[in-house]
């Protein structure tokens, strides 16, 4: 016998369930008067630096049907590639940018829209720059443990081509599952939970 390491186990996950809105976006589901606003609803103000973009996302199940009871959170760097986090040691991020956003998918259409800015490039662990990307976390009824993925921008071909994370995807045909398509100021991004177009999910 050796000494015990005395580590704890992470609390096991349980699904967010169909009523996740009550806890995380109560105003969205008509529980008003408890919180002034739903947390994470607004990420930018008129002083935020960077290019304004709209991201229109959907989450699709194994039949291609959009989930109408999912909740998506995003986490991204500011226009200069800095995260608004105490763990960010490289400098102070834009004080007018939240970095974190939270939206429920529409209960009829399944559409989920974030108004944000295009993030700057953040270094990988070895100092190489990653391409601009947005970190995504998805929970819903039927999802037992929150799913992590990344959104990249299809019009950043040069940066994407040298991105060290995308380079680790063995089956290159799956890289397009992480690419948001641009139409004007809006990027659209469909997340496929299953099937031929299944999105690359990460164990981070």
């Amino acid at each position: 016998m050796a000494q015990a390491l005395n580590r704890l186990k992470e609390s096991p996950s349980q699904t967010a369930g169909p009523y996740v809105h009550i806890g995380l976006t109560p105003n969205f589901c008509d529980i008003t008067g408890v919180y002034d606003d739903d947390l994470g609803r607004v990420m930018v103000n008129d002083k935020t630096s960077g290019e304004r973009i709209t991201m229109a996302m959907r989450v699709l199940d194994g039949t291609g049907t959009p989930l109408r009871d999912a909740l998506i959170e995003i986490w991204q760097a500011d226009a200069h590639g800095l995260y608004p986090s105490p763990s960010e040691r490289r400098g102070a991020a834009d004080p007018n940018f939240q970095g974190w956003g939270r939206q429920a998918t529409d209960m009829d259409t399944g559409l989920c829209t974030f108004e944000t800015i295009k993030p700057g490039r953040v270094p990988f662990k070895d100092g190489r720059l990653m391409a601009p990307h947005i970190n995504i976390w998805i929970v819903a009824r039927g999802i037992n443990l929150g799913l992590n993925t990344r959104l990249y921008f299809s019009d950043e071909e040069t940066a994407n081509a040298e991105d060290p994370v995308l380079a680790r995807i063995e089956h290159k045909v799956r890289i397009p599952t992480l690419m948001a398509e641009r139409k004007g100021g809006t990027y659209t991004f469909d997340i496929h939970l299953q099937g031929e177009q299944e999105t690359v999910f990460f164990d981070i």
Binding site: G62, Y83, E88, K125, M130, A140, I143, I169, F201, D203
Partner: peptide, 15 residues
């Protein structure tokens, strides 16, 4: 119908 079926891509934490 809501469970990914392909292997997850392991990523040692970046920033």
């Amino acid at each position: 119908l809501r469970s990914p079926q392909k292997a997850l891509l392991s990523l040692d934490g970046t920033l």
